[in-house]
Design a protein around this nucleic acid. Structure first.
Length: 830
RNA sequence: GCCGGGGUGGCGAAACCGGUAGACGCAGGGGACUUAAAAUCCCCCGGGAGCAAUCCCAUGCGGGUUCGAGUCCCGCCCCCGGCACCA
């Protein structure tokens, strides 16, 4: 390892150029240290270290999809922010495991491969190589011995294993259900991948299809996924997004007997208190009983309506949001509360996917039912009255506020919440109701009719049904198929590869057929953090001992765009593995922090706008350190920032000045620091030590800049004791220059090893002289430079002596004096 | 509509527990050095009035609490994100 002594003696001053020493040349410094880290295997863990760590800290960031374009600024921003945190932890004496990998399976890779006409098996390694080069260049503290690529059989073997565990645990099932079909991607999508009725990848309106698909029973975990959010240390925004997605609502299932049959219609409602006002029923057009309740004379119209609804995609349905449509079936139910006969309608404003696919309509107290009743001239009986209101007047709109029950028989006068409880239990006695919690969260559809993913390890046998592939036969290798274009058939391109799918049943040995669907990419990323520390082990997906040592992840940093996709799935998979006895924790990420978004000069970056920042040339010109520093300085890390091209000048100048302050090391003053500078130093140490662990990067950097300005003020020569402690504080942001300067200051070994972080001494940070603001009636009229701890009487005396204070006191009565020691004196006069 | 997060100079932002609003940086202006430029260094930089001392205004808008409010409370407006015919 290099140190100051190894470097060339200072060249004679280059009069032309600068005053002394050699110029800060980031490319040389960075190349040198990257080579050193590489050579020495810095930040790489051996198997032994993973098995017996001393002070482990698992620092995780979201692994990238290796696109052909290379790393974009968003990646670099996220990785740098996470790396700064990892390096900070390292400086605090933690053994920091900081892995990176590649999320290279999935539709995005496959689509790109189709577009450029290159097979993904050829394309991905190229992109991975390019990403690796870029990731090294930005100076991340990555453990290159524990990287993963989800497309390698060594990895997806275990993804398939994971599927089998869930299958055996009863958490994976194949069922025919309405699923989201993207006609452009030609595959089904999970609900989480449909945004506003559009495919999140290509913005094509999604169709509903009924195809048998593999689902993971994530909805069984809804309550735990929700309640655990309360005790994990996650960004509020992310927790709230998951809460919204899980969508818990408390209510009841009510049963309405269908007239002329033994059937009952079940509805879910959050307002059982309004059941006396349920004046009609509405079934979703897809409801299984819709046909049975239809009378012969209504059949033509009802069927026409159902056909029309079936043809509409989700977007078209949403467009009609306010415009209610529907058809009367001719059938009737009995209101379980009133015994009244009420008509059954079908309408597309009732969704099959939610609740029971049927509702009791209470037009007086539900906006949608109100509109529907208005449109079809149905009665609007009111059963809730607001405080002090006359309940006999017709409603101009649905009343959904608080109040008391009216027209509700024995329940009249009850307040809404009480009414819910009493009516539910009353109906429950007759078997017509039960309290129920309903969730918006649906089971996770994980099968994809595409090529570029791990084949689902199931064999279909005519005799035995869906049979799991024995674990010892994994991986089921994804064959190289030249024609992997998806089609509209509803099956994967693998279904065209007979020699691949033809097999024998693992159970009975008869001729059988492999499952030809592959699994969703989000399954690959739902467990990769478990694999990292065990990467390279081939006995298990994750080694039990190593996993006990390192997991759950201590800190995870990533984008909030994955709040309800990746982050929810990863929690579910971990919870499932916990229940199946594979891990001893339920939550994978102890801490999660969502970083903000980088925009450029106020606008979102996008390829079409042509305002995307290309990082490589910037790094070439200013170095990775300056780029990292600038990105972290832009704004609060958790809020993002506005990238301005010229802005890097500030941080770059800081590094140049830092370099010039240290570099002819011989010029540094030995001995005691200047007391004023030392005071500022300790204030800086305090601030940085407090803010850095909380990702307060921009303010930490500002404090370091401020301190350097003090050190250099008036062109003074810095003392070693003044500047040396700065190096470890700069190191998380700018590891290369920090290593170099640390070495030049004569230290053996890396700045990240040992205890280089400066200690904060409050006594040294204390100000001897303070500025006290003197206010008169709350307005600052003067400031006083006083020794710290000056008593009130003295401050007051001095304040009175200030002409600009005295003029306000003159002739007025001093009514009150408020003294905040060492800060402020407020004189209240009347 | 519901649930989060925001709104502070020309710009990105800072401000601890309610105590001098605008630290740090960018851009801009002026100056030094230079034949010149780059680089570097120094000074100025919220708005208004004034020769100046100084004064007034100013943290989205309107109220309130307080000796004192960017910060706390009430009511609005706007921007960003999540959910959304979810019963």
């Amino acid at each position: 390892m290099a140190n100051g002594k190894d470097t060339e003696a200072r060249p004679a001053r280059d009069a032309d150029d600068r005053e002394n020493g050699e110029r800060y040349d980031p490319s040389t410094v960075e190349a040198k240290w990257q080579a050193t880290w590489d050579r020495e295997g810095t930040n790489r863990f051996t198997d032994q270290e993973l098995r017996a760590p001393e002070n482990p800290f698992y620092n995780l960031m979201m692994f990238p999809y290796p696109s052909a374009e290379g790393l974009h600024v968003g990646n670099i921003y996220a990785f740098t922010g996470a790396d700064v945190h990892g390096r900070y932890q390292r400086l605090q004496g933690k053994q920091v495991f900081e892995p990176i990998g590649f999320d290279a399976f999935g539709i995005h890779s496959e689509n790109f491969a189709l577009k450029v006409g290159t097979h993904p098996m050829d394309l991905i390694p190229r992109n991975v190589a390019n990403f690796t080069r870029q990731l090294r260049r930005i100076g991340g503290m990555f453990d290159w011995d524990h990287t993963v690529d989800t497309t390698t059989p060594e990895y997806y073997r275990w993804t398939q294993w994971l599927f089998l565990q869930l299958f055996k645990g009863g958490l994976a099932e194949r069922k025919e259900a309405p699923v989201n079909w993207c006609p452009s991607c030609m595959t089904v999508l999970a609900n989480e991948q449909v945004v506003g009725g559009l495919c999140e990848r290509c913005d094509t309106p999604v169709e509903q299809r009924r195809i048998a698909q593999w689902f993971f029973r994530i909805s069984d975990f809804a309550e735990r996924l929700l309640t655990n959010l309360e005790h994990i240390d996650w960004s509020r925004t992310t927790r709230k997004a998951q809460e919204n997605w899980i969508g818990r609502s408390e209510g009841a299932v009510l049963r309405f007997p269908v007239e002329g049959t033994q059937e009952t219609l079940e509805v879910f409602t959050t307002r059982p208190d309004t059941v006396f006002g349920a004046s009609y029923m509405v079934l979703s057009p897809e409801h299984p009983l819709a046909d049975a309740v239809t009378t012969p004379e209504r059949r033509t119209e009802t069927e026409a309506y159902r056909e029309r609804a079936a043809k509409m995609d989700v977007v078209a349905r949403q467009k009609t949001e306010k415009d209610k449509t529907g058809a009367f079936t001719g059938g009737y139910c009995r209101n379980p509360a009133t015994g009244e006969r009420i008509p059954i309608w079908i309408a597309d404003y009732v969704l099959m996917e939610y609740g029971t696919g049927a509702i009791m309509a209470v037009p007086a107290h539900d906006e949608r039912d109100f509109e529907f009743a208005r449109k079809f001239d149905l009665p609007i009986p009111r059963v809730i009255a607001a405080e002090g209101e006359d309940a006999s007047t017709p409603l101009p709109e649905a009343y959904t506020g608080p109040g008391r029950l009216v027209n509700s028989g024995e329940f009249d006068g009850l307040e809404v919440e009480e009414g819910k409880r009493r009516i539910t239990s009353h109906l429950a006695e007759r078997g017509l109701a039960e309290a129920r919690v309903n969730y918006r969260l649906h089971d996770w559809c994980i099968s994809r009719q595409r090529y570029w993913g791990p084949p689902i390890p199931i064999v279909h046998c005519d005799a035995c049904g869906a049979v799991p592939v024995p674990e010892e036969e994994l991986p089921i290798i994804l064959p190289r198929v030249e024609d992997f274009k998806p089609d509209d058939s509803g099956v994967s391109p693998l279904a065209r590869v007979r020699e691949w799918y033809e097999t024998s049943c693992p159970s009975c040995g008869a001729a059988a057929r492999r499952e030809t669907d592959v699994s969703d990419t989000f399954l690959d990323s739902a467990w990769y953090f478990l694999r990292y520390p065990s990467a390279g082990q081939d006995e298990a997906a994750f080694d039990p001992e190593i996993t006990r040592n390192w997991l759950p992840v201590d800190c995870y940093i990533g984008g909030n765009e994955h709040a309800v996709l990746h982050l929810l799935y990863a929690r579910f998979i971990t919870m499932a593995l916990h229940d199946l006895g594979h891990v001893d924790f339920e939550e994978p990420f102890t801490q999660f922090r969502a970083h903000g978004l980088i925009v450029r000069e106020g606008a979102k970056m996008s390829k079409s706008k042509g305002n995307v920042i290309v990082p490589d040339p910037i790094i070439e010109d200013y170095g990775a350190d300056a780029f990292r520093l600038y990105l972290m300085f832009l704004g609060p890390f958790e809020e993002g920032g506005d990238y301005r091209d010229a802005g890097i000048q500030g941080p770059f100048g800081f590094l140049k000045r830092l370099w010039e302050t240290v570099v002819p090391v011989e010029d540094l003053t030995e001995g005691a620091p200047d007391p004023e500078v030392e005071r500022k130093l300790h204030q800086t140490i305090e601030q940085v030590s407090r803010q850095l662990p909380e990702l307060g990067y921009n303010t930490s950097i500002a404090a370091l800049m401020e301190y350097l300005n003090v050190v250099r003020s008036g062109g003074r020569q810095a003392a070693r004791a003044e500047i040396e402690p700065v190096i470890p504080m700069v190191a998380p942001f700018c590891p290369h220059i920090a290593e170099e300067l640390w070495a030049r200051l004569g230290h053996e070994g890396s700045v990240f090893d040992g205890r280089s972080w400066p200690d904060f001494d409050p006594a040294k940070a204390r100000e001897e002289t303070v500025t006290v603001a003197v206010q008169v009636n709350g307005k600052v009229r003067a400031t006083l430079e006083l020794p710290a701890g000056t008593p009130e009487e003295v401050v007051l005396e001095q304040a009175r002596a200030e002409p600009n204070v005295a003029r306000y006191l003159d002739g007025a009565e001093l009514r009150r004096v408020i003294h905040v020691p060492d800060r402020l004196l407020n004189l209240v006069v009347g």
